[in-house]
Design a protein around this nucleic acid. Sequence first.
DNA 1: GGATATATTTTAGTACAGTGAATTAAAACA
DNA 2: TGTTTTAATTCACTGTACTAAAATATATCC
Lengths: 155, 155
Amino acid sequence: MPGMAEDRGVDLGRELSTAVVMFHEAVGQHLGVSAGDQRALALIRGGPLSAGALAKEIGLTPGAVTGMIDRLEAAGLVRREVDPNDRRRILVGSTDSGISAHSGLFDELAAAMRRMATRYTPAEQAVIDDYVVRTVAILRGQTERLTERKQSGKR
Amino acid sequence: MPGMAEDRGVDLGRELSTAVVMFHEAVGQHLGVSAGDQRALALIRGGPLSAGALAKEIGLTPGAVTGMIDRLEAAGLVRREVDPNDRRRILVGSTDSGISAHSGLFDELAAAMRRMATRYTPAEQAVIDDYVVRTVAILRGQTERLTERKQSGKR
DNA sequence: GGATATATTTTAGTACAGTGAATTAAAACA
DNA sequence: TGTTTTAATTCACTGTACTAAAATATATCC
């Protein structure tokens, strides 16, 4: 039943999704980084990763990951370091300049988001936070569902 | 000042952004449609568009758009129709099966979102809706900012 | 310590989406 | 009606990211 009142949240969600994706693409173009590479960057942001771990995480062959790291390194966004515990491994981590280049683009957005947050009472902000946290959880679950379905379909 | 309490909204926003993008990518892979083509699909969803309008909107050459429509058409997601008013033009519109294929993937997500919405009182839902609407507006504005900056940088 | 296994890189080849220019068809204009 | 403009497609080419497999370097295991 499209158009029902309770679907307003869904439609809003779709709009939000589109807006997020378009912003993301704009950031990528601005940094000169492809959409695929950005996924890697997001992972690396969470902490240094070995090339192999990265390959596994994003579903590419080791050779492809080498090229990807090359690109990101050339752009000054990440840095290779030899793993002291296992010198075959490299650890890929964010560079300071990479973080700030990225953050720089987000600064205005972050400022606008903070400004907006002041519109709400603490209680309202708590509701919003709760909503966002739950939405993230749902999205992650649904992403996993799709990914798994696809993988099982492939084999 | 990273880590401050008022940045919680920003960090949550980043997580939400990543989750949305990853979900979007999963949907694209599932439909066998590249990320770029999905932008076109989103535009077409809003109503039939001529090939030229599509080219202008997504910043590709007419030749590239022809190929893109070919791909989407081969996937059964869109349909070409000759514009009755100007027979040089074609209008690209969503197919029923394209809509349902797409919606199908979103159905579970939509259901989960609706289920989550029931957790909130009407007043809380109003706050959330307001938040989402404002966030979308901010994202669109920031996207435009980045896009313009990039274009001016290019010339 | 030497054989085997593992991590990354390198290399050669492939696939594909993009550009720019030529082509075809229809509309607009004078 | 004939010329010019506009819309989409086709064509030849290019750039780039990918895979698979070989090469290199280090770790692990008897």
